[in-house]
Design a protein around this nucleic acid. Structure first.
Lengths: 226, 226
DNA sequence: ATCATAGTTAAATCTGTATTGAAGTATTAC
DNA sequence: GTAATACTTCAATACAGATTTAACTATGAT
């Protein structure tokens, strides 16, 4: 068991491969060439590294014509990379500076079963600003008006409160370093959006895409420009 | 940000350092010499590697006389190592003991020689709730009724008290972040459970599996649903 | 005071493996 | 068909950094 652990650590530990993992963390699938550009090395070299990661089952690949799309092969792998990302000392967030060069997917991925990524954070901001939820010493609470809002959105808050799992809690996303909404309310929000086809899950990835409808509705309900 | 990620990955990625991390995963603090033995390399080499891990704040050290005790510097580090441990292909689990969120390492692992992981924490909770043990300014004590309970369980508390090692102490588990029971009482509990075939050790792993009998008994004695 | 143990530091060496260069196959475009 | 793109394979090379050799400091035991 130990040697397998060491092998896994070594695989991720190489600088080029770590850069690959970092790139893939946004949930998208990348082609070998894209990765070689992102990581700034030769295609041959990328090919070799991808081979090793595939062999170890850290990545999986899907062939489409002459392209090969690589992604994390399972969520456990993503967790390792995320856990590592969390080791990084947190920078202060200069909110709008980096929003330009956002990769489409770092953009709106699901953090387990709630919305994280840029959209998740923007959503939390919006709900806070509209006083639908209120921050109170590091927890979130739902205001009386908020309760109305949620039921208008088709979410029964009383129902959510009954569930055993944590009701509503701020969840710090590694990629955004800002709070978004987890807990049963987070899940309900996510599900409602899926149900209404504002967003769609992609297969084999934690990334989520926003539909045309979602784009309009998010602007309307949350003043979020996606 | 990316370069810091790569640096962190590289630090854990070296075989010797990975072995150090693996060793430290059980939660104990180790001296440099102990680590050099566990990892099978020279003291000089260990010293060099520990220096790097310290420098990067992945480990912290405490000096005691001529010994230096190394441990993970924070839970984030432990999470990375645990997440990596979870990458390792799981040994097959008998259907009886399978439970939904089975993760070999987190689930029910031994922390040195007592029960940690999910079960260990639940157990401590149960014993506290039943007032078998009592928390008193960050230590655990056994109540008079508790003493009876333990002897009913086949554990002689007076015997345990005589041992030189720490009798009973709360131990913070990395994976659960809640206290469980260490000390000689913790060991006795663990051994008793093994003896009664409530749980079984797996070869080559810290994980422990719960037997069908254990499942029933734990529910009965501790109201723990496994 | 002396010796053993614990750990560190510095320079010399060694080695695994990442990278590169050259040549190959497969697919799409024209 | 030919050319271009996407990716792989193999042998040759380069090099970071792990390990070793050796000499050192600090603490504890007798």
């Amino acid at each position: 068991m130990e040697d397998q652990f060491i092998k896994a650590a070594g695989l991720i530990g190489d600088a080029t491969r770590a850069a690959i993992m970092w790139t893939l963390l946004d949930g998208r699938a990348f082609t070998a060439t894209e990765l070689s550009i992102a990581v700034n090395t030769s295609p041959q070299n990328i090919s070799m590294h991808l081979g090793k990661l595939l062999e170890a089952n850290l990545l999986s690949v899907e062939k489409q014509g002459r392209h090969k799309y690589y992604r994390f092969s399972n969520k456990e792998v993503a967790y390792v990379v995320e856990a590592m990302a969390n080791l990084i000392p947190k920078p202060e967030i200069s909110s709008k500076t980096k929003s330009e060069n956002y990769a489409p997917v770092k953009y709106c991925r699901t953090c387990y079963d709630h919305l994280a990524g840029k959209i998740g954070v923007a959503l939390a901001d919006s709900l806070l600003e509209q006083k639908i939820i209120i921050e109170k010493n590091n927890t979130f609470e739902i205001s009386p008006e908020g309760q109305k809002w949620f039921s208008g959105f088709g979410i029964n808050i009383e129902e959510a409160r009954k569930q055993k799992r944590i009701f509503l809690k701020p969840c710090l996303d590694w990629s955004e370093r800002r709070y978004h909404i987890a807990g049963s309310v987070g899940t309900l929000l996510l599900n409602k959006m899926l149900e209404q086809d504002w967003i769609r899950r992609t297969t084999n990835s934690r990334a989520i895409i926003i539909t045309g409808k979602g784009e309009k509705e998010m602007l309307k309900s949350f003043k979020i420009v996606v």
